[in-house]
Amino acid sequence: MMQCLILEDEQAAQELLKGYLEKTPFLNCVGIYESGLDVPNEQLKQTDILFLDIQLPELNGLSFLKTLTNPPLVIVTTAYPNYAIEAFEEAVMDYLVKPFSYERFYKSLARAQMLLSKEKKEKKNQIFLYADKTLYKTFIEDIIFLKAEVDYVNVVSAEREVLVLDSLKSWSEKLKPFNFLRIHRSHIINLDKIEKVSGNQVFIQSHELPIGRTYKNEFLDALKEIGHFQ
């Protein structure tokens, strides 16, 4: 369910949008306001899509948009087509000129749904590693392998190595939804990064990693399942 907020001062335009929202099962309205000065910050934080009129009392819609540090997706709804260039310079997602049909409205929402889905997927695939009083943003797909170092885990990616206070067992649980596998009591690897396997060694970039005897059958089964091994 996508959360939307309407910033529109014309009653007829409000009613049109409310009618379109009622036809759209994956959309929920968190509030309708006639001035940007009335919009609560908490509601704005919950908003995925902002339907924004340009001609508003007290504060122009685009001027209001410029005050937002982390705006939601914005769909401009206006009777004035001549603001389009300025609106897209503010990175609005779409520009609907009144009167617009439900078909045009739905097409815009379908695009918004796709963008939000992509954004959520990207957020899900990233983590922040804490070490030396610093947080390192890391995409899970960029991790090559992890190595146990006594009470720490060395998280190795192409960009850097980060030594975090944790256990390999804990990381094994965290990475279950992704294509990682424990191949040794001291190593978890990203199966997508494997370059070759020779004997009891896995080769990933410049790294040569051991395959533990008790982990080898599970490792070979995993390769067969993902098509890396015939």
Rank of each mutant, 00 (worst) to 15 (best):
Q3K: 13
T78C: 11
E15R: 15
E122T: 07
F145C: 08
D132H: 10
N217M: 04
V92P: 04
S108V: 02
F51R: 01
Q11D: 15
D221A: 11
L209Y: 09
L68M: 12
K176V: 14
A12G: 09
I49E: 10
L168F: 14
T77F: 00
Y102Q: 07
I144Q: 10
T69L: 03
L17K: 00
L191A: 05
L96Y: 07
F88P: 08
A87P: 01
L7Y: 04
Y102C: 06
N190T: 10
Q14V: 13
Y102V: 13
L73T: 01
E161H: 04
K45H: 12
K169W: 06
H228L: 13
Y130N: 04
A222Y: 14
K45L: 15
E42A: 07
K169I: 10
D48P: 03
P72Y: 04
G36I: 01
K193I: 08
N217A: 10
Q230I: 07
E119D: 07
F145A: 03
R182V: 10
F145V: 06
K124A: 12
L56H: 02
S63P: 00
L109P: 00
E15K: 09
S101F: 09
Q113H: 03
S198M: 12
G19F: 01
S172L: 12
P99E: 01
K45C: 13
Y215V: 13
I75L: 14
V150E: 11
D38Y: 13
E22K: 14
M114H: 15
R160I: 04
F219C: 06
N60L: 06
L73V: 13
G36R: 07
A112N: 04
F51H: 03
K224N: 04
I143Y: 11
C4M: 05
E22G: 02
F145R: 00
L109V: 03
L73Q: 09
Y83G: 00
F105V: 03
E86L: 02
N60S: 09
S170N: 08
V162I: 15
K45Q: 15
G212L: 06
K216Q: 10
I194D: 00
T69R: 11
Y95G: 00
I211M: 15
R111D: 02
N200W: 00
C4K: 00
F51N: 00
D94Q: 07
D142S: 09
E42R: 13
I204K: 13
P57H: 01
H207C: 05
F88T: 06
A222H: 13
V39T: 11
L96A: 02
F26W: 09
L68I: 08
V162F: 04
S35G: 08
D221W: 04
E22Q: 15
V74I: 10
W171Q: 05
V155Y: 15
P40F: 12
D192T: 14
Q46T: 13
E10F: 03
A158V: 13
V162R: 03
Q3H: 11
R160P: 08
D192L: 14
Q43F: 05
P25R: 03
P99G: 05
E119L: 08
L5E: 01
P25D: 08
